[in-house]
Amino acid sequence: MADALLTVSNLETYYGPIMAIRGVSFSVPAGAIVTILGANGAGKTTILKTICGVMDPLKGTVTFERREIQGLDPDAVTRLGISHVPEGREVFPFLSAAENLRMGAYTRRDAAGVARDLEMVYDYFPVLRSRADQRAGQLSGGEQQMLTIARALMARPTMMLLDEPSLGLAPRLVKEIFEIIVRINRDRGVTILLVEQNANMALHVADYGYVLEIGRIVMEDTCARLLDKEDIKEFYLGMKSSSVRGTRRWKRKKTWR
């Protein structure tokens, strides 16, 4: 794709001898929300870690704004404009929420802009304003998740990598967080690569989706079309198809068509 902001091609990443990513290629157009679906251990998190530089790929390239970035240190990747929201609310537990947010803007030098953006993220997440002086470790799980998203936003990224933002949150909170993700994308033009197990939610907010199984991409399409596919319905959305006789075959094979 010519207008792609981020292009990943033939990526292979290993954990020691174990091949976690088996030659994955995909691209994310500027301004879009793209999602990668997959079960546990499919390699979703590994892809994000490889993009943001925490893991180095053995083969393949990651191109961001026409520049190859694979193998760079994570702080260098962040400086280029990719913010990673890691899985599992990695906050700085003994710093206050406000200090956590300021750390998000570590790479920036414009104090006035940082102050403006602090107000901006408080508008997105009003609960964080009332928790500003509390230690991040004392916030609730949902607040910590909001804090990590807000913190990533403070770097004023071109692109955000979101790893399982719904993990372990109540359904109402999940909905709220996804609404904010969409707002960030629409209002601020931040391109988003979203990795999720909550396929229903992800397919409804994203524009384009990839399905990852055991380190390979098995299917890709626009999210509207993905929602209609039988395999997606059955294996990712939990909708059961029944035959004419009302009974279900013992096991349906995935065909990815």
Binding site: H84, P93, L95, Y106
Partner: peptide
Amino acid sequence: VAMQAASQNQLAAYYMGIP
């Protein structure tokens, strides 16, 4: 503060662009 952050959560500090 960045040093505190790096010692509390090394991985997250990397993600923030802290060297």
